[in-house]
Structure formats: structure tokens, C-alpha cells
Amino acid sequence: MQEFELRASDFGLVLMNPNQLIVGRGTAEHHPMEDFLRMDRMPHIWCSTCGLGTCLTAFIAAVEESTIPREDIVVVSGIGCTGRAAGYLKFDSFHTTHGRAIPYATGLKVANPRLKVCLISGDGDLVSIGGNHLIHAARRNMDMTVICVNNFNYAMTGGQAAPSTPQGAFATTTPYGAFERPFNIPFLVDSCGATYVARWTALHVRQLTISIKEAMLHRGFSFIEVISPCPTVYARRNRLGSGLDLMKFYHDHSITKNFASTRECDIKFQQDIIVGKFVQKDEPTYLDAMDAQMKKTLGAKFVPYVGPMDPGADSGRTKSDART
């Protein structure tokens, strides 16, 4: 029986103090998160009662709390409803081709190891078409944060069945109910070697904020699955009501089990959802392992690559480059 050190933050206790969740400098006229958003693109295209906006607020709050310099954060996303997130966030952000968010992010991390690479993408993008990239990034323990927003279908293209659609759920391509076995995504990434795995719903904003913050400060492949309501396609086809009804369902049917075995975390159609932080362990990342192996083979000849800019000298960034 493995013992884990449980902290108060694992139970969301820290944020009971409202002063802990401080997102910036809100005034009576100015929303505190507007500094982190491209307001010229607002209002966003996400439907009313969609949970994706809530995921963005959690991400922004986590960035603010983690005190990572903003110019070091890169947001990458793929295609789909969730793929729009990179376009709305005012960071260095990449909206990549379908399923290829992780290869882009891997390239960014390898080219400049000082960056904090965050991915926000959907289940169809990361687990389906980008499934191979996901398992290999987890296997290599690439130092990146992956936020996978799971709404159980391909929502943007009209609600086709995805590898996360639970058995028995209706989708455009499964008019008689889905019969394929869906992925248990935390188990998938855990078995491939991810070193931080968590799952929350869009309703668990405080816990999600803590989790994203922990994942960003964690060295290694961090994966957070966020269960999000899709009112227009998934809920409508399955007659589940609006996104608010799904939020109430999450409220009643999520069971927090920190460090539960990911094997038991599969999602059945409209049944209890196990949420929590499942895995947190320290293992050498891809770049650590590469440096260690090169040093072993080449000895003193090996010069570790620290990125395009020498941290000791002028950073190479000029004032005009700084994002406002």
C-alpha cells in the first residue's frame, strides 16, 4: 500500500479563504480577467451554458496564482470548440492543425526549454486524431501541461461520436446509441507514464484552478481532464437538458477520490464520475533523460542546450516585444 502525503489543497480547503483566489486588479469598471483575454475577439463563439468559458477562467486564475512570468507561458491548442481557447487567450498562443497540438508543443519545449507550454484542447483532438502524439508525449514525460476538455463528442462539426462517447449515448453517427467502448483517458495517460493526472468537471472551478496551477509548476507530463457540458449537441441529442442541468448532474454525481486507481475511473453514461488528483510523481523528463544520456556517452564534450537565449546575458527580448 503506497502512502501519499495529502495536503489541505488536495481537498480544496486552501481556497476556502476568498483572498487566496485573487485574480488581479478588478475594479468597478474593469473585469480582472480582461487583461488575459483578447477582448477584440469577444464575445466568444461558445454556446450559452457551455463549460469551456469556465475552464478558461480557471486557467487564467491558475496562471495568475502560479506567478510564472507571462512571457514564458505558451498556449497551444488544436481544432474544435476547445481549440478556440488559444485564440481567446492573450498569451503567445498557437492554433495548430487537427490533433497536432502536442507535436507543436513538443517542438516549442525542445527549442526553448525555459518555456512553460500549456495545451488546451478537446477530447476529439487530443485523444482521437492526436492519440498517438498524446501517448508518446506521456511516454517521454515531455514537460508540458495538457488540459483536455472532454465533452464526449465532436461538438464543432455537429456531434459525431468520439472515442470518449460513453456506451449508450446518442450522437450524429450513432443514431441507435454508441456501442464502442470509450477511452478511460486518465488511465490511458497514466499507463503511458504521465507524472501528473487529474480529472475535474467544469463545476469544480476551485479544485480545477489548484490542479492547473500544480500542473504548471510540476516538472513532467501533466494531464488534466475536464468534464464539460455540451448543451447544443451532446445534451440535446441525449435529452439531458441544458448545460445548467448537466452542471447540476455533476454536482450530484461527482465523487472526489484523490489518488484513486485510474483503472477504476471510466465514465459510464450518466453515472457517477470519479474526480480528483490521481497521480503525482517525480520522474526525469525528456530533456533531463537526454542530458543524462548525452553526458554519459560524450562526457566532458557535451554542452547542454539551454535555449536560444543565454540566460546570463541580455535576454534578447526587447521592450517592444513585451506583451502588454
Binding site: 476568498p18 483566489l21 478588478g26 480582472p32 480582461e34 464575445p43 461558445w46 469556465t54 477562467t57
Partner: peptide, 13 residues
């Protein structure tokens, strides 16, 4: 600040 955290539209704070 729960309304602020939950609002998907950044319309309440």
C-alpha cells in the same frame, strides 16, 4: 467570487 470563477462569458465579477 464563485460567480466570477464560474461565469463562462467574463460578464460578472
Amino acid at each position: 467570487r464563485l460567480c466570477e470563477a464560474l461565469c463562462p462569458e467574463f460578464a460578472i465579477w
